[in-house]
Write a protein that binds this DNA or RNA. Structure first.
Lengths: 225, 225
DNA sequence: ATTAAAGGTTACATATTGGTAACAAAATAT
DNA sequence: ATATTTTGTTACCAATATGTAACCTTTAAT
C-alpha cells in the first residue's frame, strides 16, 4: 500500500514541488498551508510521515508536533524542513528517534532518500514477531508477554516453554519432546523437571486457575488448545 | 562548517596553487607530498574530499585509495588528478561512485565546480543524523550525547553500544549480537566483556539508577524499551 | 472405597547468570 | 617517552532461576 505523506508548509510553490516529486515516487500526499486542519486529518487518515516546515507564520512547527505527541500520543515520524542552521537546532533536542531534519534549500533526491529510510525503519518496527494463543501474546523480539492486556514477567525457560507450546498448539507435547526442544539436551534430566517447570508456568500465566490455558494430558504430556 | 580537503600531490608548486585557490573558495586544505602520513590524518581529521595525484613516485594513488577503502572502510570521495599522457586510462574502472577524474593540465574553475558538485552530493552526511530514546539524544555526526538536557561524555565503545541498543529498541539483544555489531568480531572475546561494558554504560547514563533505561533480560541479553 | 500410578506442590540445594571491583593491557593523549 | 584514558580480563559476590526430592493430591481402574 502506498504511504501517505502529509506536508505542512506555508510556501505554496514548495508544496506543489514536493507533491509533484512525491507522487512521482509513488507516495500519496496531503498538503497544508498551515497547521489549522492537520490535527483533524491525522485522526481521520492513516498518515505515515509528516513533512513539517519549522518556520510557519503562526506557530513553530516543532511546537505543534510536540503538542500533538504529548496531548494526543501522536506517533508519526516527522521530517522538519527548516531554513535555519541545522547544528543549532539539532542540539536543542526537539528531535525524537525516527525524526529527521533537513535544511532548505535541500536536494530533492536527498529528501527522498531520507523519507525512504524513515518509512523503511518504521515499517520494520511495526512488523513485530508475535505469537498468540487466545489472549496470550508473546513478542519474540522484546520477549514481552501480554496476557489479558497485562504484562506478565516470565523467566527465559518459562518464555521458551510457553512459546513452544503455542507454536505447537493443538498437539499434545510429550516430556521428551519438551526436553529436547526447550531444554535442548538429549537427556540428563530426571524426574519431575518438566513437570515442575510446567506448573510454575501455569501458576504465572493463570494464578487463579480460571483460564486453564495449559492442559495436562495424563500419561502423555501437555497441550495448549 | 568549512569543508576540509586533503591534497596528495608530489608537485609542490601544484599543491601551493591548489591550496591558494581552495582557501579562496572557502575550503580548509591539508597538503601532502606523499601518502606517508595520509592514513593517520584521515583517521584523525574529518576530511570531506581527497584530491589525489594518480602518478605518485612511490605508489599508485588509486592503489593507495583502494587499499584504504578495503582495509579501513574509508569512505571519503576522491578526485584523481592525472597527466593526460599517462599510461593509465579512466576506462580502467578504478573510479567508484562519487569519485571523479581530472586530467592535467586542468582548468582550475572546472576543478572547483567538480569539487562543489561532489561536496553537495555527499553533504547529507554532515546533516542532522540523530537517534533518540526517551530523553536520550545521540547525534551521530558529532557523537554528542544529551540526556535530560545535559551533555554526557561517552567513550567510543559506550556510544556505539548505546547507539546499537537504541536502533534496535524494543528488542532484546543477545551478547553474540552485540559482540558482532559493536565489537565487530566473530569471537575473540570472552567472559564478562559485554557485561562489564554494559554496566559501565548504565552507570554513565543513569548514575543514580533511577531511570532504568537499559534492562537486563536474564539468560538472554539486554534491551532498551 | 481402595489402591496404584501420575501429576502437583513445596522447600531446599545447586547451578547459572549477572554485577562489581580491581587490575592488566591497549589505545590515546601529552 | 610518559601519562592518561579506555577497554578487556579475572576473581569474587549476589541474585535468581532451575533441578531435585519428598510429600501430597488427583485420577481412574478395580
Amino acid at each position: 500500500m502506498k504511504a501517505q505523506i502529509l506536508i505542512v508548509e506555508d510556501d505554496k510553490d514548495l508544496i506543489e514541488l514536493l507533491e509533484y516529486r512525491l507522487s512521482k515516487e509513488g507516495y500519496e500526499t496531503l498538503g497544508f498551508l498551515s497547521t489549522k486542519n492537520v490535527k483533524k486529518v491525522i485522526n481521520e487518515e492513516i498518515i505515515d510521515l509528516i513533512l513539517m516546515d519549522r518556520n510557519l507564520p503562526d506557530i513553530e512547527g516543532s511546537e505543534f508536533i510536540s503538542m500533538l505527541r504529548e496531548k494526543d500520543g501522536m506517533d508519526i515520524p516527522v521530517i522538519y524542513l527548516s531554513a535555519k542552521d541545522s547544528k543549532y537546532h539539532v542540539r536543542e533536542g526537539f528531535l525524537r528517534g525516527g525524526d529527521d531534519y533537513v535544511t532548505k534549500p535541500f536536494e530533492m533526491t536527498e529528501l527522498m532518500l531520507r523519507i525512504e529510510a524513515i518509512l523503511r525503519r518504521t515499517k520494520k518496527n511495526s512488523q513485530a514477531n508475535n505469537v498468540t494463543f487466545r489472549d496470550i501474546h508473546l513478542d519474540l523480539n522484546s520477549r514481552i508477554v501480554i496476557i489479558e492486556n497485562r504484562e506478565v514477567e516470565l523467566t527465559k525457560l518459562e518464555f521458551d516453554l510457553l512459546h513452544t507450546l503455542i507454536i505447537h498448539q493443538g498437539n499434545v507435547l510429550k516430556r521428551d519432546f519438551l526436553l529436547k526442544n526447550v531444554w535442548g539436551k538429549g537427556a540428563g534430566y530426571q524426574g519431575r523437571t518438566v513437570n515442575v517447570a510446567l506448573n510454575r508456568l501455569k501458576e504465572k500465566i493463570d494464578p487463579d486457575k480460571s483460564k486453564d490455558y495449559i492442559k495436562t494430558v495424563r500419561g502423555v504430556g501437555y497441550t495448549i488448545q
